[in-house]
Every structure is written in C-alpha cells, then in structure tokens.
C-alpha cells in the first residue's frame, strides 16, 4: 500500500527527489524497460507531443499504470539527454512542467510548500492572508521568487506589482503553482546527464527515429535564425573550433571564450550557441548559459570581442591560416571581408 502511494506520487512528479530515489531503489535497467512496449509507447507520445506543441501527452491515468508512467518519463529523459538538442530539451521541459502544474492546482497548500522546500530549497510557507479583498495562500522569499520568475514578461509578475512583506512575496494559489512550474522547467533544462548510445534494441530504434525527427526540426529553426550568418566566411581558426565542438572535444577556457564571443559578434543568439556546446563532455547548461550570457552582455550589446590573431597565435588557436589571413589581424575582420565576397547574390 505504501509502495502504491509512493509510486503514485513519483508518477505525478517524476523529476522530484523522492521519485528519483524510488527509481534508484527499484533499480530498473534500460534493458527491462526495453521489453515494456507500453512504457516505450508512452515515452514516444510524451516526447513527440512536447516537440510539436510544448504540451505533455501524458494521459490522466487512463491507459497506463503509474509504474509505466514513471518509467516512460525515465526513458524519455534518457532520450533527451542522448539527443543533445537544446531546442528539444526546452520543449520537453516546458511540457513536463506544464503537466506538473496541473497537479499542483489540486494539492493542499501545505503539500505545495513541502514540494517546493524539498525539491528547490525554497522558503515557501502556506500562509492564508487576506489583503484588500484578495486571498493569498502562500508566501515565498523574494530571492526564490525572482530566480523563478526571471523569464516572465507580464507586468503582473514584476516584483513591484507584488505585495511584499518582510522579505516574502504573497502569492495566490494559482501564482504559487505557476511559479513552481517555472522552477520545474528550469530544473529539467539544467539537469543534463551524459548519455551515449548504443541502447538496448527497441530503445535504440526509438532513439534513431527520434534523432532524425529532432534534427529536422532544429535544422529548420537554425536556418531561420542563421539566415544572415554566413558560416563559409568564418576564418580557419573558428572553423577548427566549431569542428572540435561538433566532435565533442573538450575546449579550453580561452577557446570557449573565443568561439562564443566570435559567434555573438556575428549575430548568433545565446540559445543557438548553447546548442553547439551541448556536446561538450563537461557540459552544464546553467554554467554554459551563464558564461555565454555574460560574454553577450546586457541587452544584446556584445560586451566582448574575440582576441586578436596575435593572441590566438600565441595560444595555438590559430590553425590552418589561409591566404586571406595575410590581410587581417583579427578573426572578425576576416569574417567581414570574406562575407562580402561570398554573400549570395539573391539578397
């Protein structure tokens, strides 16, 4: 009986610490899941629907048992980790977080607070308060609130439009669920595991199929974003670094700084760059994002430019120097010159 409620909870919140502990206890291997057609089927629909609509296809317990639900999340996450597409990971995280939010609405105030404290280390208390005719159910420390809502754009989420007392933002139940959803999303985006194929046969087949679908989607996205960027005009040093990244080779700090600042300067956005880094063996989304955003500076005004050729020569990042390099002293200068020549006539 106890096991049942445990599994029930874990199926609802499969990203939670207790769900992860349970999975460990149950000690299920990918091999076992490979034989479970139901779990694989559910994982597939969860992922595909996330990719298309940012909604989770997880059924409200109609066809599948809680156990299948839990393992389907597990295998879906393995797929997301293995495919290493930031775009895909985001969509999946959004979908799963939205699914969690639906359950949050139904929880008691106390339960919500416990979830937040255990999983996100938040200072969230159930605290029924009535101010100016409005009912508030919780209070959340402003620092937790700000970190969770950093991506919210609507005016009503601005801190200045919240009621704040002694360091705590007062929240209504719906707000609490919404803010928690954002935390779940951030958690799923940043929790990246190094996973590499091959997998057991059925999962392997699933993986290969999925990879094709995701690559197709991301290519389409990339082409839209990269429209004006002309990679053929990148200097040899940058091409070499891109090649290393594609192969998943570890890059030094200087190399990462060089490639990031270069790509930002030619107009690539943070997410697309992040996508290039996903393959790095030591990839951590939060750190990488932080570093890229820092180099990007605030509000798109790129703060840093890549080092000049002289410095790249001395740090051995200048490789396969070509004839165009004779005329320039900076990788960005190389790009600007070459681009003029290569630029397609159509535009």
């Amino acid at each position: 009986m106890l096991e049942d409620t445990k599994i029930y909870e874990a199926a609802k919140y499969p990203w939670s610490i207790s769900a992860r502990r349970l999975l460990k206890e149950l000690d299920i291997s990918l091999k076992e899941i490979d034989a479970d057609a139901q779990a694989l089927q559910l994982a597939r629909s969860r992922l595909l629907q996330a990719l298309e609509t940012k909604e989770s296809a997880s059924p409200e317990r109609k066809t599948s048992s809680e156990f299948v639900e839990l393992t389907s999340f597990f295998v879906a996450k393995v797929m997301v980790d293995a495919i290493k597409s930031m775009f895909f990971r985001r969509r999946w995280a959004t979908a799963e977080a939205k699914r969690a939010e639906r359950y949050f609405f139904k929880e008691s105030d106390l339960k919500l607070a416990q979830l937040a404290t255990r999983n996100f280390n938040w200072q969230l208390d159930p605290k029924p308060t009535r101010i100016a005719g409005r009912e508030f159910s919780h209070r959340l420390h402003f620092a937790n609130y700000l970190a969770a809502t950093a991506g919210f754009h609507e005016r009503e989420w601005k801190l200045v439009n919240k009621r704040m007392v002694s360091g705590y933002v007062l929240l209504r139940k719906g707000d609490t669920a919404r803010v928690l959803r954002a935390a779940v999303e951030q958690l799923l985006i940043s929790d990246v595991k190094q996973v590499t194929p091959p997998f057991p046969p059925n999962i392997q087949q699933f993986y290969e199929e999925l990879e094709v679908i995701v690559r197709g989607r991301t290519e389409r996205m990339k082409q839209e974003i990269m429209g004006e960027i002309i990679p053929e005009a990148f200097p040899p040093c940058i091409q070499a670094l891109l090649g290393d990244m594609a192969e998943g080779k570890p890059l030094s700090h200087i190399a990462r700084f060089t490639i990031t600042s270069f790509l930002l300067n030619v107009g690539m956005d943070v997410d697309s760059i992040l996508n290039l880094f996903v393959k790095a063996p030591d990839f951590r989304e939060d750190l990488a994002r932080y570093q890229i955003e820092h180099i990007a500076g605030k509000r798109g005004s790129t703060e840093y430019t890549p080092p000049a050729c002289a410095y790249l020569v001395s740090t051995r990042l200048c490789v396969k120097k070509d004839k165009y390099c004779e005329f320039i002293r900076h990788p960005l200068a190389y790009y600007r010159r070459r681009r003029k020549w290569i630029k397609p006539k159509s535009s």
């Binding site: 620092a143 700000l146 970190a147 950093a150 801190l159």
Partner: peptide, 15 residues
C-alpha cells in the same frame, strides 16, 4: 539569499 541573483533579478529589485 541575494548572493546568487543575476542581473535581471537585480533589475527587478531596482524597479
């Protein structure tokens, strides 16, 4: 608690 806050979060505090 304020130590880890990023730039955008601090802007909210200024606002």
């Amino acid at each position: 608690e304020v130590q880890p806050l990023g730039s955008a979060e601090r802007r909210e505090i200024v606002d």
